[in-house]
Structures are given as structure tokens and as C-alpha cells.
Simulated scan of single mutants.
Amino acid sequence: MSPAPALDKPTVGLAALFATSGVIHMVRPQVFESIIPKPLAGYRLELVYASGVAEIACAAGLLHPATRKAAGLASAALLVAVFPANVQMSASQGRRAQRKGTPQAQAFFAGTLARLPLQWPLIRTALRAAGR
């Protein structure tokens, strides 16, 4: 069995991002409930909590050498799994920006769009932490 990849700054950054987001999922779940894709709407709160727990577990796993490989793979899978929620957020914010027409609503919408392609470098970082 090969040793875990070294703990580098990108992996620490991904762990910090997951830890922060995971805690927010736990203490302010309402922030995330609206971005659950419509087919899963009956399980909004449960999915928000589950994804928060998963993010915290991935964060902790990325930091420890014995669990880094598995956590890297789990982190990449989690990022892929939550991508539809990020798309839903952009679609919802796009409609809101059209209705409101305010610069703030339009800026927030632009931010949600800019966030979508940023998932790929995060996935790459997770896979690199897994030694892939």
C-alpha cells in the first residue's frame, strides 16, 4: 500500500472550505434548503444535514494521512453530487435577478455562475489528495 500524498496547501484549503460549509449547513440549514433540486424537495432538510455531515467528515479525513486517500475520493464524489444543487442555485438566482433587476441581485447571480466552473479545480484537488 502506497503512502498517502503529502498534506499540501490546496488540500488544506479544500478541507477548510468543506469544514466551513459543513458547519454552515448545520447551523443555518435554511440557507441551503432552496437549492435542493426539485425532484428531491421532499427531503430538503435531511439532504442539507447529510451533505453538511459529509463535508465535515471529508474535511477531517483530508487532514489525516491514514484517511486522506479515501477522503479525497469521497470529496471528489461529494463535489460531483452537489453540483446539481449549485446549478439550481444559479437558475433560481437568475430568475430572481430578472425579477428584481437590482445590481445586487445581478451581482449575486453572476457570482453563482462564476462558481460553477470552480467545481472542477476543487475536484482535481480532491483527486490529487487521493493520489490520483
Rank of each mutant, 00 (worst) to 15 (best):
H25W: 01
M26N: 00
M26G: 12
M26A: 12
M26L: 15
V27I: 14
R28L: 14
R28D: 08
R28K: 14
R28V: 07
P29K: 04
Q30G: 12
Q30E: 13
V31C: 07
V31H: 06
V31R: 09
F32Y: 14
E33G: 11
S34D: 13
S34G: 15
S34H: 13
P37W: 03
K38N: 06
P39E: 04
P39G: 01
P39S: 04
L40R: 11
G42S: 12
R44K: 15
R44M: 11
L45C: 09
L45K: 12
L45V: 10
V48M: 08
V48I: 11
V48S: 10
Y49I: 09
A50I: 08
A50P: 10
A50W: 10
S51Y: 06
S51N: 14
G52L: 12
G52V: 08
V53F: 15
A54G: 07
A54K: 02
E55V: 02
E55Y: 05
E55P: 05
I56Q: 02
I56H: 00
A57S: 13
C58G: 03
C58K: 01
C58L: 06
A59K: 01
A59V: 04
A60S: 10
L62Y: 01
L62M: 00
L62Q: 00
L62V: 01
L63C: 15
L63Y: 05
L63D: 03
L63S: 10
P65S: 11
P65V: 03
T67C: 07
T67I: 05
K69A: 02
K69V: 01
K69P: 00
A71D: 03
G72D: 04
G72K: 01
L73W: 10
L73Q: 13
L73D: 07
L73C: 08
S75Y: 01
L78G: 04
L79H: 04
L79E: 03
V80K: 09
V80G: 14
V80C: 14
A81E: 08
V82Q: 13
V82P: 05
F83V: 03
P84I: 04
P84Y: 04
P84V: 04
P84S: 02
A85N: 07
N86W: 09
V87R: 01
V87S: 03
Q88W: 06
Q88A: 10
M89F: 04
S90A: 14
S90P: 04
A91S: 12
A91H: 06
S92N: 12
S92M: 09
Q93F: 14
Q93H: 14
G94D: 08
G94H: 10
R95K: 14
R96M: 09
R96N: 09
A97P: 05
A97V: 03
R99A: 13
K100I: 02
P103E: 13
Q104G: 06
Q104A: 15
A105M: 00
A105C: 03
A105L: 02
A105S: 05
Q106D: 00
A107Y: 02
F108Q: 12
F109G: 00
F109C: 11
A110V: 10
A110I: 08
G111T: 06
T112C: 03
T112K: 00
L113P: 04
L113F: 08
L113S: 07
A114S: 11
R115V: 02
R115D: 14
L116P: 07
P117H: 11
P117T: 11
P117G: 12
L118M: 15
L118Y: 10
L118D: 02
L118N: 02
